[in-house]
Write a protein that binds this DNA or RNA. Structure first.
Length: 473
DNA sequence: TGAAATGTTGGGGCG
DNA sequence: ACGCCCCAACATTTC
């Protein structure tokens, strides 16, 4: 009997998985579920999403075993691993979910030359080269992109059921044994947890999502990002849930939340497409004029930022939330990114790198897009002089400091009035509250107003320099 | 998916 | 009553 390989990359689920189902149906259930640890992806225990991934694989293996199958894990270059399997075993075909990252495209094209690899479905809802401007060029601004994205018909197939009973994988096929003793208290990396989160978000939060999504003190978002990142929930399923939610609503006013959440999914599509069309964004700023900013090299500042010790409560709360949970609220990502880049004048790539290490949902396309956007050096019209004021952002999106107090316990007793600018507390009050600035909680690393001026000057300098070079050429 | 700086208007206190 | 000043509130421009 011959097998099909279901090559798992970033779609670790059994439900609604076209690649798996194609492999399964085409071959009477004789499927080898395979995951390859690829060293050239340079993901290791240093990155926290690796823990999420490995745990998710263990859970997937358990799910497969309950269906009579099991997961085969291998390590090495995918082409050689697959070639060896195809050589050793009777293999009909290899099925995998389409992935549009530059590395994945290159890898898959290489493999397709010699092996029967077929890509089915995809990480994105729309193929990156199907959403283009009238002149055939890719969009580089989000709003027109999202308009075009929405205007195209969305051909969502009905969800594919998970296979109930699978054929066993022969014992002689050996599998890597990976450790499983890690704590991941905030995000259980299972398919059913992802399903539950999606369901409960749609049932209780999506209605007010547009109004509340920016509030860091409320649990108003879906917290689905790690699940989407590793395909424990498919993007297709998320959109299906939105559509059926809207279909059940009598008046369109109440669809605002759904519209807004779909927009976030479209951001994900947008940055997948940007990376597809402009792969160099992983190496340099999208905007040529902002490639020679004179960044500060400030190890101590970077470390203070990383560990949540900047003296700005919202920034510190967010960075500690990231450290503790592996996830950060979207608004907080913008605030902390803005702080690193525009207050500390540290290269946005340092932040990009740190986020990739810390985030369970760390994804090159989305993370790079977000950092370039905040730094004002990327696609979209976010002007470089748009600088977040951490005090005002705190007051707007964490009005009474619930978020700050949760993650920065040393500020727990600080009155609302001072919660986002504790350095204004009278010294006597600081002493009474056991919250002395500079002792119990750090003093501000920089003064925002002056830091802002410094950064605007550095950006203008880069623009001027690049302009001059242009004229000389 | 911002905020600061600057400009304009209009109401009220006051001589 | 009137003009003047102050400044809050809002609008516009600039970074």
């Amino acid at each position: 009997m011959a097998f099909n390989i279901w090559w798992i990359r970033r779609d670790l689920r059994l439900y609604d998985n076209p690649a798996l189902m194609t492999a399964f149906k085409a071959n009477e259930g004789y499927v080898i579920p395979l995951f390859i640890l690829d060293p050239s992806l340079q993901i290791s225990w240093e990155s926290r999403r690796f823990v999420f991934l490995i745990k998710a694989l263990h859970h997937l293996n358990a799910d497969l075993r309950s269906r009579g199958s099991r997961l085969i894990m291998r390590q090495g270059n995918p082409l050689s691993v697959l070639t060896r399997l195809v050589h050793d075993l009777p293999i009909n075909a290899i099925f995998a979910e389409a992935d549009y990252s530059p590395y994945a495209i290159k890898r898959d094209n290489e493999i397709k030359k010699t092996l029967p690899l077929q890509t089915v479905g995809g990480v994105s809802l729309r193929d990156p080269d199907l959403v283009l401007k009238a002149d055939g060029q890719p969009y580089t601004v989000f709003t027109p992109y999202s308009r075009a994205w929405r205007s195209l018909p969305l051909e969502l197939a009905a969800p594919v059921a998970a296979p109930v009973q699978m054929r066993s994988v022969p014992q002689e096929i050996d599998s890597l044994d990976l450790p499983n003793a890690f704590e991941l208290p905030y995000y259980l990396p299972t398919e059913s947890e992802g399903q539950m989160r999606l369901e409960s978000f749609i049932n209780t939060k999506i209605e007010n999502y547009a109004l509340r999504r920016d509030r860091m003190d409320l649990e108003a978002t879906s917290n689905l990002s790690p699940y989407l990142r590793f395909g424990l929930v498919s993007a297709q399923q998320a959109v299906r849930a939105v559509i059926s939610y809207c279909a059940g609503l009598p008046d369109e006013d109440r669809q605002a939340g759904a519209y807004s959440w779909l927009n976030e999914l479209i951001w994900r599509e947008f940055y997948n497409a940007i990376l597809f069309h402009f792969p160099t964004v992983l190496k340099e700023a999208f905007r040529p004029g902002l490639r020679q900013i004179n960044w500060r090299v400030d190890t101590a500042g970077l470390q203070a930022w990383q560990s949540g010790q900047t003296g700005y409560p919202v920034v510190d709360a967010a960075m500690r939330q990231l450290q503790e949970t592996g996830w950060m609220h979207n608004r907080a990502r913008m605030i902390t990114a803005s702080f690193l880049v525009k207050d500390l004048l540290i290269n946005w790539q340092e932040g990009e790198h740190w986020f990739m290490r810390q985030l369970l949902d760390g994804d090159p396309a989305a993370n790079n897009g977000g950092w370039q956007w905040t730094a004002g050096v990327g696609t979209d019209a976010a002007p470089y002089f748009r600088v977040f004021n951490p005090v005002l952002q705190g007051q707007k999106f964490d009005p009474v400091g619930v978020y700050v107090r949760r993650w920065v316990p040393e500020l727990a007793a600080v009155p609302d009035k001072y919660i986002h600018q504790p350095w204004l507390m009278p010294v006597l009050l600081q002493r009474d509250l056991h919250c002395r600035i500079g002792v119990d909680y750090p003093d501000r690393l920089v003064e925002h107003d002056r830091a802002r001026e410094r950064t605007l000057a550095a950006y203008q300098e880069s623009l001027r320099a690049s302009d001059t070079q242009h004229k000389i050429v």
